[in-house]
């Protein structure tokens, strides 16, 4: 398979996703008939004001907050049909998904290498091979020199890089990131966004990033905007950047 054909394969297809919280007078439609497609090797930004439903969409796609209706297909495998799981969700998550959040959420009692290694060992990779791959990833992300440090001893940017390494550990077809640069300064924030672009393009992973940071939109192949639970539209990156500058 060539790079071009790999990139054209849909890594994620979300079809008519709806999520409703509460009922009657307290009913809130957090996500309303959302359809989204992200290809392998593509990095997509999800924009929108607070309460637009971005995180609800992300957690639904991350298989930790099932939708009320709609379908989710990841890497060609139907995963959710409404609230019904079609696969073993924990197993699917560890093999096909990677997560990065605003906070790095590193496990405080494991050093940088072990934080990556644990994701591999959970996926039944033998310890020695897991350690080797963890070191490779830390090296790839430029934090190999902090491999033996506990999270407390790492800067915010270094922690986020380790979190990205952990997300990449099992060669996921889809990486979901929820405001990964919110806790970083603009310089480090841009570095992380560029890292995602590098990962998407070099490793043929689909990357969906929820962000408020309009300064880094040029990094993305595409941006999507949500409002009141609906996906309003999709723009090519160059258009989105131009609108932001205007």
């Amino acid at each position: 398979m060539t790079q071009t054909s790999a990139q054209s394969t849909a890594a994620l297809e979300a079809l008519n996703l709806t999520k409703v919280y509460g009922s009657g007078n307290t009913e809130v439609i957090a996500m309303n008939d959302v359809t989204l497609r992200v290809s392998r090797g593509e990095i997509v930004a999800l924009l929108g004001p607070s309460g637009a439903g971005k995180s609800t969409l992300l957690t639904a796609l991350g298989l930790i907050n099932p939708p009320n209706s709609g379908r989710i297909v990841i890497g060609g495998t139907p995963v959710m049909d409404g609230p019904r799981a079609l696969v073993d969700l924990p197993a699917f998550r560890r093999r096909h998904l990677g997560f990065v959040f605003q906070k790095a959420n590193l496990i405080p009692f494991l050093n940088a290498t072990e934080n990556v290694q644990v994701a591999l060992e959970i996926n039944d990779v033998p310890p020695r091979a897991a350690k080797r791959r963890a070191m490779e990833l830390l090296d790839y992300l430029g934090v190999a020199d902090r491999a033996d440090n506990l999270p407390d001893a790492l800067s915010g940017g270094q922690q986020q890089r380790v979190a990205v390494a952990r997300a990449l550990a099992n060669h996921p077809s889809l990486i979901l990131a929820d405001e990964p640069t919110a806790a970083l300064d603009s310089h480090r924030g841009r570095q992380v966004m560029e890292l995602f672009r590098k990962v998407a393009h070099e490793r043929a992973a689909a990357v969906l990033v929820v962000t408020h940071d309009h300064r880094s939109l040029d990094v993305f192949d595409r941006t999507c905007e949500m409002e009141d639970g609906r996906l309003r539209g999709t723009l090519e990156a160059s258009t989105a950047t131009a609108q932001t500058l205007a």
């Binding site: 197993a91 560890r94 997560f99 496990i107 959970i122």
Partner: peptide, 16 residues
């Protein structure tokens, strides 16, 4: 609890 939630998120089995 937070670390356990993270482990579960990245797919850790209950046995872990």
């Amino acid at each position: 609890v937070h670390d356990i939630a993270m482990l579960k998120l990245i797919g850790a089995r209950n046995s872990v």
